[in-house]
């Protein structure tokens, strides 16, 4: 049986991704200006303030979004900033809760006081708009079934007016929804941590200042880890991404060489 031409391309990508994961190459990198700006944004938030982190992604992108969310939670807890977590995608719920509870444990943070996880709400527009009026109305109970109005943190925070920053950890266009509804209607400060494939579509929002910060995929997470001096999963995965990009470029070059060779003949 003859393998189709694209099977060779698939095999090359597979090899390029797996090899560096098994044998790290430790290629050093330069930190991107977006990551520097994002870190400065978080540094500008006073201790004791509250940041809302929305896990707007599915299980499929966990390899890319978990490092993003983890490094953010570490930075926030290390500065004694409180976190309200939630998810507007059902599948982001378990991952979001897992990330926050692990990092909270690492920093000795107390549930209900330093952080809460509200869980999932469907119909994102209604949820985002509703939280502009009252968070406890949209989430009467948290992920663990506790009454939210009785949690100490949510006795001080009623809606976006008491939230210093909303961070959407997204693999799709839910970050746009936060800008459309929370920023435009309630003037909440919104920023996004995105999978790399989505970044280009968010650049107009970032350039216009509607998004106050943006972290770009695995590369952004690796930059953030470098800035915090806490090497983690993102830095380890960047070698694989490097090799995959290199292989795709070689395939493009190969495709062009074949095309020109064919034309000559």
């Amino acid at each position: 049986m003859r393998l189709p031409r694209r099977a060779f391309a698939f095999l090359a990508v597979f090899a390029a991704v797996t090899f560096p994961l098994l044998h790290p190459l430790n290629i050093s990198d330069r930190v991107s200006p977006e990551a520097v700006k994002f870190k400065a944004l978080i540094d500008s938030i006073p201790a004791g303030s509250v940041v809302m982190v929305s896990f707007d992604h599915e299980a499929s992108t966990v390899a890319e979004v978990r490092p993003l969310a983890t490094v953010l939670a570490r930075h926030l807890f290390s500065r004694d900033v409180k976190i309200i977590g939630l998810s507007l995608f059902a599948e982001g719920t378990a991952i979001g809760n897992q990330v926050l509870s692990l990092v909270a444990e690492e920093y000795g943070k107390k549930y209900g006081q330093d952080w809460v996880f509200l869980g999932f709400r469907p119909q994102f527009q209604a949820a985002i708009l509703g939280m502009g009026e009252s968070i406890t109305n949209v989430f009467p109970r948290d992920y663990y079934g506790k009454t939210t109005s009785e949690l100490p943190l949510l006795k001080e925070v009623f809606n976006y007016s008491q939230i210093a920053l909303v961070v959407s950890v997204a693999d799709g266009d839910l970050g746009y929804a936060w800008v459309d509804y929370a920023y435009t209607r309630y003037h909440a400060r919104v920023s996004a941590m995105l999978t790399a494939v989505m970044v280009a579509s968010y650049m107009p929002l970032y350039a216009s200042g509607q998004l106050s910060g943006l972290v770009n995929g695995l590369k952004g997470a690796a930059d953030y880890e470098r800035l915090l001096d806490k090497p983690g999963a993102a830095i380890r995965s960047m070698d694989a991404q490097s090799m995959a990009h290199a292989v795709i470029l070689l395939l493009i070059l190969g495709g062009n060489a074949a095309y020109w060779w064919g034309r000559k003949k």
């Binding site: 599915e58 299980a59 499929s60 059902a90 599948e91 799709g172």
Partner: peptide, 9 residues
């Protein structure tokens, strides 16, 4: 013409 799942992938 049917609903499959809300999950993207």
């Amino acid at each position: 013409v049917f609903f499959v799942t809300k999950s993207q992938f």
